[in-house]
């Protein structure tokens, strides 16, 4: 959506929020009006984040989540899980890592308490939480959550899914930075195997794996293998593996659905 269109959407969402507030204020005991207010807040929050007004967006989310905790409101666990993980994602994007960690963790606890093991967001939540832990230098926790992400995606999407490949790749990066080069190589190989299977031959993600393997082999002193992987990586001119640098991990998009309440 173009910027002007987004700004119009924001104005529209703001008017909706104002009306929702007035309605909720006029009948504080009306649950449906409270829910509509919360939904308006979260919708406006999402729009604000999408135009880069991250702090304002987070402010909307925080108020929405705070209101959702009212004992008068009865949400189902899936809705709470979605809102909690939205909050975490926004805070994560804004760089508020400790707060993001808290909300991702809350989301996981919600899922466990409500036995939402099959929820499609769980894999994303575990992967992104792992990345937060990585940034906070808590590598053991990062690894644990990457493995849970693997488990979740394997169940939901299949063992040879792109999501599994992405998490394997992220585990490769993590192990590289923990100086566990052989483990890293193994993860990148597995990721590469799935990506070459599922993606076009010339694809950024495929080239990324080749580049990372080139860097790793160079690190362990196997120049011949490094050169082979480097040549594979440079087949795609969009990726330049200068000096065999490792590519960074990937956060997974946790954008909310259009509407939570049916």
């Amino acid at each position: 959506m173009k910027n002007n269109e987004l700004q119009e959407e924001i104005s529209k969402a703001n008017r909706t929020l104002i009306h929702a507030r007035r309605a909720a204020e006029s009948q504080p005991g009306n649950c449906q009006r409270q829910i509509q207010l919360i939904e308006s807040l979260l919708s406006l929050g999402r729009l604000r984040v999408s135009v880069g007004e991250v702090e304002r967006g987070i402010s909307c989310y925080r108020e929405g989540v705070d209101r959702s905790h009212s004992p008068d409101l009865d949400f189902n666990a899936t809705d709470e899980l979605i809102w909690c993980s939205w909050m975490a994602y926004c805070l994560d994007c804004a760089g508020s890592l400790e707060e993001a960690k808290a909300f991702y963790t809350d989301a996981i606890h919600l899922a466990e308490a409500a036995r939402l093991d099959e929820n499609e967001r769980l894999g994303i939540i575990h992967n992104n939480l792992a990345m937060v832990f990585r940034q906070l230098d808590e590598d053991d926790s990062a690894e644990a959550h990457y493995k849970k992400a693997l488990e979740a995606f394997s169940k939901q999407k299949g063992l040879r899914s792109i999501e599994v490949a992405d998490v394997l790749h992220n585990l490769g990066v993590l192990n590289y930075f923990r100086d566990r080069y052989n483990d890293a190589i193994e993860y990148f190989r597995q990721s590469l195997s799935i990506r070459t299977d599922q993606l076009p031959e010339i694809h950024d993600d495929v080239c990324q794996c080749y580049a990372n393997l080139a860097a790793l082999y160079q690190r362990i002193g196997d120049e011949d293998e490094a050169k082979l992987y480097y040549e594979q990586s440079t087949r795609n001119s969009q990726i330049q593996a200068d000096n065999y640098e490792i590519m960074v991990s990937r956060k997974m998009d946790n954008s909310p659905p259009e509407s939570v309440i049916e």
Binding site: I10, R21, S59, R62, D66
Partner: peptide, 12 residues
């Protein structure tokens, strides 16, 4: 957060 959201709405 609620206060700033209300203010933001008015500014909008």
């Amino acid at each position: 957060d609620q206060i700033m959201n209300v203010i933001d709405s008015n500014v909008e």
